[in-house]
Design a protein around this nucleic acid. Sequence first.
DNA 1: CATGAATGAGTGTTCATTCAT
DNA 2: TATGAATGAACACTCATTCAT
Lengths: 220, 220, 220, 220
Amino acid sequence: MATIEPGTRVRERRMRREDMAMAGAGHRRGSDTKAQIRKVAIELFTEQGYEATSLREIAERLGITKAALYYHFSSKEDIVRSLFTEHLDALDALVAWAREQPPGPDLRTRAVDRMVDMVTGSGTSVMRFALANQRVVRDLHPGRENAFERLTELFEIVAGPDASVEEQLRLRAALLSVNTVLLAAQGLKVSDQRVAAVARDIAHQLVPPVTDDASAESGP
Amino acid sequence: MATIEPGTRVRERRMRREDMAMAGAGHRRGSDTKAQIRKVAIELFTEQGYEATSLREIAERLGITKAALYYHFSSKEDIVRSLFTEHLDALDALVAWAREQPPGPDLRTRAVDRMVDMVTGSGTSVMRFALANQRVVRDLHPGRENAFERLTELFEIVAGPDASVEEQLRLRAALLSVNTVLLAAQGLKVSDQRVAAVARDIAHQLVPPVTDDASAESGP
Amino acid sequence: MATIEPGTRVRERRMRREDMAMAGAGHRRGSDTKAQIRKVAIELFTEQGYEATSLREIAERLGITKAALYYHFSSKEDIVRSLFTEHLDALDALVAWAREQPPGPDLRTRAVDRMVDMVTGSGTSVMRFALANQRVVRDLHPGRENAFERLTELFEIVAGPDASVEEQLRLRAALLSVNTVLLAAQGLKVSDQRVAAVARDIAHQLVPPVTDDASAESGP
Amino acid sequence: MATIEPGTRVRERRMRREDMAMAGAGHRRGSDTKAQIRKVAIELFTEQGYEATSLREIAERLGITKAALYYHFSSKEDIVRSLFTEHLDALDALVAWAREQPPGPDLRTRAVDRMVDMVTGSGTSVMRFALANQRVVRDLHPGRENAFERLTELFEIVAGPDASVEEQLRLRAALLSVNTVLLAAQGLKVSDQRVAAVARDIAHQLVPPVTDDASAESGP
DNA sequence: CATGAATGAGTGTTCATTCAT
DNA sequence: TATGAATGAACACTCATTCAT
């Protein structure tokens, strides 16, 4: 041990909710703990990654015990799964929407728009989380339908059956570009709106023109 | 995580090198253990993430003991740091090259080309690894020069002093697009070369035209 | 150390509490585990020294797991710190008492008496522990108030402001002599009471007579 | 891991002797490594304790490898044993001397004198070391003759066959008092000589008067 | 004389998880 | 709804020790 560091490391067990709640009416013991857990969890998982985030951290941040987490969720994995299925609906809706659309030259553009909306929309986006935890997401429902499966489906619908590999690649890149821009914006002082705008522009720019049937897409 | 990873991890303790060694070479043929550690480490860190990868895994895969890792590296962190500084040189070279170039309308394009080359070349792994472990990379040298700092520098040099925020964003996105395409290609059956080609195309397409002051190149 | 300790340490893993428990009490009867840890810890630390005592030893002797120790204490250091602050009160009380006493020729004698009482009093004394682990104790609160600081304070109060260095030395030796006698008694078949008696005698004998200069309390 | 600390922990392997030696003629590679090891070892064992001191520390401080230590000593224990037997001779001499002395009333006093000389002389370190590592010393030669055995022998010879338990205790305390004073002197600004003088005084004061059978011994 | 490379047992510590209350 | 107390498995890391060169 050599030299012993003085204070630190006191584990600050107990820092109950009473401390911070109390004031403001006792009305909150009732219900939404589960929602709060989800909120904190997605934040931490996104910031630090799934494996690097411990249940203790989540519990402590909420002023509850680890055991309490187990009342609401049956495992750590269950938390992350819940986060996903919760937000997977958005993707599902997008897929459903795409399926209904008449296949036309502007479907791709409109799909991209919705994608941009989705990603830049709600606070801590699942997309960001998914990118930060690809492995977990992939392992989550092995063989079953997960976010990546959904995306693939979306890609296929929007690309259409006749799209060449290059076309597919470009389209996927277009749809994913929001995240690239998000990544690119790190360290730059830009408002979220401006980032979103640029993302949209770039995405539009990348959408490959539809190549109906004949000819090559780079035209004469 | 318990249920997540299905097979694997079966605890196959002991599977020593004697199996493959010619029984008689005292401890090891005196050479490249360190290099092998790095190789295995970058593989696992990329696949599973830094935190999700244990030193036991690395050691076992090499048929050595955990303690042996500590002969070559002073900590887990040291391994990851070593991986980085090893390949940081490529980025450094790129920055140096950019600095020497005469600022002209085609600098951006040529920078993008080199970037694509770098990422699709041997360095593939490091970039992929970096993206899969952003947090670790960021925390690695706090305040000091790391991969992200390097990239930022590159961005600034290539963008030039008068670039607007939008322009910067687009340029960054262009330079990073290789990775987007890499990501997009997952699950698609395409050769690496084709992916690289598309990446290059897309990157070129995204490079913002230089808007110094005069009309310049975007003209008709 | 390998060959040093002959028997002992036979690795007797698992020797659970079920043996002595009435099978059915969920985890523990809810009470004094923490106290028991402290008890065992001070014993082992005193016998073997802090560094030479492993948490496994402590846990095993109690029939609990190492992890259980961490439920009650946040680190090994925390255990030792707790032992100290727990018993530091005794020293504090002594200091407080000394401060209140009217400075007179018999203060020294009475202080010595209380000291002897304290050290020979409670079972495994902190004093013995402190002497066996001087370094740890010193490193424990670096710069802050620890046992040695307390003793110094006591020495100064009892010695008075005009004491010569020799006088101080003798007084300190008197106060510490209990421990010398404790040490000297090792290997000798004597009852604790007799040891205490001799210690008291010796201590009294060593107390330096007060040597003011002016009349003061040794007056005729 | 949470936050990664930057530099530190680089293990500073290699810091060879060439760096510091080189200058001063190459004459030192020859011999006295063993002596230096002992010197460093006794320092560190005394400061930090035997268990808390690692062979790596010793080796590093000397600019050699751990393996080199094993050339000179067959184990860590061997080092400590060597330290002891080296200085055990002094004690042996004392015992021998005591044995030769005619048992008389002043033997005790003279024995105490020699003891004080021994402890305050060059041997200081060993005694201090022994006190700081009582357990190790005790375990060192289990059943065989060690420092404590020697001391016990000395005690018995000097006390004589008819001494009561109290007498023995006092005598032992007298002989050990040097160490008490050494301990007491910590934190006090006194020269070693003065400490020695006080120690001698105290020791003399504690020597119990010989109570053979008849009469008082200090009588005229 | 000494090192480079390695090992096996052990350290303190943290984790996800369980369950009686 | 939650908690207090605990567990077993794993983790990163260090130690004393070995041995071919």
